[in-house]
Nucleic acid binder design. Structure first.
Lengths: 348, 348
DNA sequence: CGATGCGAGGTAACCGGTTACTTCTGACGT
DNA sequence: ACGTCAGAAGTAACCGGTTACCTCGCATCG
């Protein structure tokens, strides 16, 4: 045993009276070793409580790296479920998977990516909405090249592609289509004044949901009203605050709400409730994501294949499927948060 | 550059026209290097897109290891919030943190712990309820010794201590007290027939909550009725199924429900709802954990300091606080899911 | 009976860094 | 002019494994 108290393979070899190579072989189990010798080694390993050093191991032999998923926060169900899909598929593929969280801080994202590069992770999966500006593009392009140089694959999940020549894989889902469908659902229930709660100009996810919302309105001949598009971050608190402020301004002026995601919907429902407006009797509401709390709220929403998103990201990273950008479908889940408005034309 | 396409420190040294030691020193920044030399090295690093190999680094120099938290599933808010606390504190302490999930499978737990040993993680935090039997005790004792031998610390979070001489730290919270308090809350609202939904004999968390439930009943002179203690796993589905089955058997025979956790409560509420029983008008219900969805349900529940639990685990692991078993307090959060039963004595 | 082959185990190079120790260079003191 | 010393850079040992290659002994075969 070294002075530090750490047991090395040489200690085991000494104790078993064999060479280090033999110990290594017994442990690997891929080389013929006499039963008697093997026993001596196994006994020495047990007696010394020996654990091979993973770093030394990784240094000499190339072995599969871990699969890492990087998200803002694991406390947001949306991310948690994608992470779960990643874990499941990684386990299936015999890989360890790690979840790392950035708290939405680009600085931490940077140091995590650097760390994963150094760890020679097999794949790094970056999840979550972003502001699609030049800074972002530059940052991701750097990540992509740096990771590629370190032998890791970069997968962007729910983020826009980076363009030709950048070594990054992409898996996403249909934001615009889902938003269109759920808006159309409200429209065909007779709603015309639909508040979109959750604008975040520049944010890709929000932008494409707004696009679906607008296109559905247009399709039904309903003019878009900027006053019905309200900003809010994708959190419960933001949804609550935004709805509260809106209600404080005067009469609602809308009969239905399309919340940018289920968290916003949940906060908005609380604000409505505190204002004496019942869902769906007074106000109809729909969300997006279909995370489990939506079930408790009886919220009509758009279902995202969270699990499948994570699994697909892993399969893509490991080259199990062809590399083209993968776009998964979404579908609307009808629960009890939308009430048909009846034949009467809503007042303008 | 090596044939494999990987850039090593020697490639950088060659390109910069200096020795590997100089490159290492420039990167470490802790040794005087002429500005001109430094520039040559920096340029070479940039041109080659060099990333030091973390394994090689870890092998020669001792550096802080990562902090790992191992949970059943990150999709359960209870775990997600504890993990978040761990991440936050780890970031504060300048450590990387990893979340690993087992899916509740002891086999995967074992391989994850083995892997973390090999990675020489600085701390391994094991979270979650368990069956406290000899098998468990043996397994944990082995983990504890093996991790200690590898220089890692083991922290049990929300699990019972292992006894003297086992190198494991413990941080928990007051299950019995919280259960007692919330049961007393129901009792003082006039409820006498309180269904405990979520028994799991042998499971430490469940057992101590049941203990609190019983002691509160006893204190109020209400005899315990085994028919009012119903088994259910700690999941939404289990809560739903158990309540459905119970209601199918005949008239409820209870006026209030104490759900083993908020997930069970959420499932039970859905089952009650489908059976035409309203909360809290017909049936009162309380939960445990106070995870955010409880807010949407307007569920009266017991608040756990999830964040603080995670943070405390990290501080304990890093020796920032004294080692004695740390028990955090809980408190009841009153929302709208309990209705006073009024002066009339409920029928037996 | 000596050559051949093969199975078991040892030797040492190597993975890619860090760092103690050594060497070299030039400024400075006498 | 020569010895001293400090600063900058190089040399090589080391971290703890893996594995290509080599050696040795014994059974098999011509």
């Amino acid at each position: 045993m070294t002075p530090s108290g750490r047991v090395t393979i040489r200690d085991v070899a000494r104790r078993a009276g064999v060479s280090v190579a033999t110990v290594s072989r017994v442990l690997a189990g891929d080389y013929p070793v006499l039963a008697a010798t093997r026993n001596k080694v196994v006994r020495a390993v047990r007696e010394l409580d020996y654990v091979p050093n993973a770093h030394a191991r990784a240094l000499s032999a190339a072995r599969p790296g871990a699969i890492a998923i990087v998200v803002d926060s694991v406390a947001m169900p949306y991310y948690a479920y994608i992470a779960q899909g990643v874990e499941e598929q990684a386990a299936l593929e015999g890989r360890l998977s790690l979840i790392c969280t950035t708290g939405g801080d680009p600085g931490r994202e940077l140091s995590i990516v650097r760390l994963l590069r150094e760890q020679r992770a097999e794949a790094v999966i970056l999840v979550g909405s972003v502001i699609l500006d030049d800074d972002y593009r530059k940052r991701m392009t750097e990540y992509a090249h740096a990771l590629a140089a370190a032998g890791s694959r970069l997968v962007l999940c729910g983020r826009p592609p980076l363009g030709e020549g950048v070594p990054a894989l992409v898996v996403g889902y249909d934001n615009t289509g889902g938003a269109h469908a759920v808006t159309a659902h409200l429209l065909s229930a007779g709603h015309r004044r639909i508040l979109y709660l959750g604008q975040r100009p520049g944010h890709t996810t929000s932008d494409s949901r707004v696009a679906g919302y607008r296109s559905a309105l247009a399709e039904h001949g309903v003019p878009a009203d900027p006053a019905l598009e309200v900003e809010a971050e994708f959190s419960r608190e933001a949804g609550y605050d935004a709805m509260r402020r809106r209600l404080a301004e005067g009469p609602p002026g809308f009969t239905a709400v399309f919340a940018g995601n289920d968290l916003i919907a949940s906060g908005a429902i609380q604000a409505l409730d505190e204002h004496g407006l019942r869902v769906p009797e007074d106000i109809s509401i729909v969300g997006y994501d279909d995370v489990p709390p939506a079930q408790d709220l009886r919220l009509t929403t758009v279902h995202l294949p969270h699990d499948e998103l994570g699994r697909a990201a892993v399969r893509l990273a490991l080259g199990r499927v062809s590399a083209g950008p993968l776009i998964l479908g979404t579908h609307i889940v009808v629960r009890g948060s939308v009430r048909p408005l009846g034949p009467r034309r809503p007042s303008r």
